[in-house]
């Protein structure tokens, strides 16, 4: 007896970002996500896999077609991103592209939760818990790195020119991360 596929219950209810606001802190909709591990030399040799660029500098990301994105978080580690519906296709394509190599592709689509932080005070709010320099010179568009926000580990991305930051964290840390951002952001809310 096959029941209808079970529905998702995300830990944070998604909401729409308002980049024009002084501060906007908005949980994002579920997405396809994979942790890709591949030896540094292999990444250099093949350059890309299934449309995901892999040979960028560490702590940089690159957008790919169809809303996909690869972020290099370490010498042999990438976070692959795409629309939720693309999950199976991404897995299939990457497996195929890397067949025969030493690699690991692990689905983390339910492990991670993303929150978009935008608005004029986005940096100030993130720097309320994150110790990194988020100035354009230090964290230019396309930056992506694992770091900390308060007592939670996060991955911080700035996918493009827009001053919109994406914070990814593990599912169970999401209420804390959202709570901390909102607490720090109160000062700017409605300002």
């Amino acid at each position: 007896m096959a029941e209808q596929a079970a529905r998702r219950t995300p830990i944070l209810a998604p909401s729409a970002a308002r980049p024009e606001a002084a501060i906007s802190i908005a949980p994002m909709v579920p997405a396809a996500r994979f942790a890709l591990r591949l030896p540094e030399a292999a990444a250099k040799a093949i350059g890309s896999a299934a449309g995901f660029r892999l040979d960028m500098a560490i702590n940089r990301s690159a957008a790919a077609r169809d809303g996909r994105l690869a972020a290099r978080l370490g010498p042999d580690e990438w976070l692959l991103h795409g629309p939720e519906t693309a999950s199976e296709a991404i897995a299939r394509d990457v497996e195929a592209a890397l067949a025969g190599r030493h690699f690991a592709l692990v689905d983390i689509g339910h492990r991670n939760v993303a929150i978009a932080v935008a608005g004029a005070h986005a940096r100030a709010v993130i720097n309320g818990g994150c110790p990194l320099d988020l100035d354009d010179d230090a964290f230019p568009p396309g930056s992506a790195t694992r770091t900390l926000l308060g007592k939670a580990e996060i991955v911080l991305l700035r996918p493009d020119e827009a001053p919109v930051f994406r914070i990814e964290c593990w599912r169970s840390f999401a209420p804390y991360v959202l709570g901390l951002l909102e607490e720090v952001g109160r000062e700017f809310a409605g300002a």
């Binding site: 560490i58 370490g74 010498p75 694992r146 770091t147």
Partner: peptide, 14 residues
Amino acid sequence: VYAERWNHAHGCGR
């Protein structure tokens, strides 16, 4: 001077 191990645990993990 001391040679010591560090792990970038909340970064690249290396």
